[in-house]
Amino acid sequence: MTDAREHDALDAALDRLVQGEPASAPEGLEPLLQTARAAREAFSIAVPEGVARAHVATLTGVATLERRRPRHRVALVLIAAAITAILLGGAAVTASASALPGEILYPVKRAVERIELVIHSDPASRTKLHLEFAQRRLAELSALQALRRAGQKVDVGAAMSSYQAEVKAAEDALAADASSAGYQALAASLDAQLQRHLAVLAALRVGAIPGPAQVAITNTIQHVGSALSARDAALLV
């Protein structure tokens, strides 16, 4: 069989497989079809219930906001919080505020944050929000480190990446605000906050168990330090 004919024959067998029909392939291709069957089975993973509920709540909440569009952002935030509380249960939203990565309510916490970001579209507000979220990630990191020291298995690396992503998003939002009158004040506020973050990160590194987590913290310190230096250099130009 030529390559192209073999590819076509396998493709036809895969079509039947993904449509749930009995699939067979020419003799030489049967091992590949068996692998495809096993892969299809392995890929059938579930979305955790808490994650799915948070996503659907976000979709529903945003759609309602799009329809209503009140004038004032404060009203938007209150409506978003109310919708999310109704859909997920007010207690769930309140309890999610202290949830840590890996806990069942953590996706709710992140969903509420995403709604806040959808509502605030201007760069200055987004800078402040991402900075606030970065601070939350840092608090989560401290809590995770404490759990780790207590012998629990926690994913500090993932939390560190989430913190870095929020810092990066704050920097990007700030850059998008560069032409506004309030840019200098906002940049100064961001830098002051990041300086405080550096102190927290340094303390976390001292207390970290040597290994990948400590390396990740060191990398993050370098990342935040580089961002601050770059902004200092830009001010000197």
């Binding site: 500090v156 690396g157 560190m160 990446s161 990948p212 990740a216």
Partner: peptide, 10 residues
């Protein structure tokens, strides 16, 4: 992620 220093846990 590529712009960040490599994070061995990530």
């Amino acid at each position: 992620n590529a712009r960040r220093p490599e994070d061995p846990l990530a």
